[in-house]
């Protein structure tokens, strides 16, 4: 199923680039329910439906809607399902999308449920790896906040369908939880841990960076120390393979030097764009416009 979604995204990529026009979702309405702020996920979903000729129905601000009056998510979903052909949901609590799916008469797309899952991000990460590198026999380094970063957790689980050599690069405080590492090893992945960025990037096809958040550290000095150690600079990349690609879910802060943007390694803005064809594929599939 994963490959089918990625194949469909590839078919739709020219439409996402506006090189071709499409109206396969004409007359369809996508309801966008974001209970938490987001720019790129929300905007790429809205772009995706519009590029396929459909329309968007936005919840608007949570502060002025019925939710502020104490309406349950279950009721909101039942009402909005009556207005739309599919619902994209982002919610601060884990399991919200699953709950929504129990009350909805239309498909629910999970755009993030608290610290739980963000599956469309994982699909676009896989798509980026497939388009810019290769999924089979992948050597990937994941760096930054591997403890709290749901993006990297989900990506690792997804990669277990393809097999991969995974190198984890993080400070001691932000190591990937041991139960996840055990899970990945049980699924046949090679997982190694290091705190040295230099050694990690030498032999990988993809370097997946994530943002290290200041609030995870007791003080600014500690944060700066870690942030500097994990920083990607053009100099550091001299030891990387020429075809190595750098991904990042964005927004970035200081972890990737802007000087890296001009190198052939930089792939994060492409990655961000790939969110559009991937979400187009998901919408076309769940709304029945494609099989």
């Amino acid at each position: 199923m994963i490959d089918h979604i990625l194949d469909t995204a590839e078919q739709l990529e020219d439409i996402a680039r506006n090189k071709e026009q499409s109206d396969i979702l004409a007359g369809k309405i996508l309801a966008v329910l974001f209970f938490e702020p987001s720019t790129r996920t929300r905007m790429s979903f809205e772009t995706a439906i519009m590029r396929l000729g459909g329309n968007v129905l936005n919840l608007g601000s949570v502060d002025i809607s019925s939710i502020a009056k104490g309406e349950s998510l279950a009721d909101t979903i039942r009402v909005v399902a009556g207005y739309s052909n599919a619902i994209v949901l982002r919610h601060p609590m884990e399991g919200a999308a699953k709950l929504a799916s129990e009350f909805s008469s239309v498909p629910i797309l999970n755009a993030g449920d608290g610290a739980g899952h963000h599956p469309t991000q994982t699909f676009l990460d896989l798509y980026t790896i497939r388009r810019e590198s290769h999924l089979e026999g992948l050597k990937i380094a994941l760096a930054g906040d591997l403890k709290y970063g749901r993006t990297v957790h989900s990506l690792c689980y997804a990669l277990s369908h393809y097999g991969a050599d995974i190198t984890l690069v993080s400070p001691e405080e932000l190591r990937m939880p041991q139960e996840i590492i055990n899970d990945l090893k049980n699924r046949g992945l090679n997982v190694t841990e290091t705190d040295s960025m230099e050694s990690a990037i030498k032999d990988v096809d993809v370097l997946y960076m994530t943002r290290v958040q200041k609030e995870r550290f007791p003080d600014d000095a500690e944060y700066q120390k870690v942030a500097n150690r994990l920083k990607i600079t053009p100099e550091l990349l001299e030891s990387a393979r020429s075809e190595m690609k750098i991904m990042h879910p964005l927004p970035r802060t200081t972890e990737i030097d802007p000087g890296v943007d001009a190198t052939p390694h930089a792939c994060y803005f492409q990655q961000s764009f790939y969110g559009v064809p991937v979400r187009m594929a998901l919408l076309a599939l769940v709304m029945g416009a494609m099989e």
Binding site: S72, L73, A74, H91, P92, M93, E94, G95, A96, K98, L99, E102, D113, G114, A115
Partner: peptide, 13 residues
């Protein structure tokens, strides 16, 4: 046991 699980909110489930 997850206090932020939707099943621990006031949803009808």
């Amino acid at each position: 046991i997850n206090s932020n699980c939707i099943s621990n909110s006031n949803e009808p489930v």
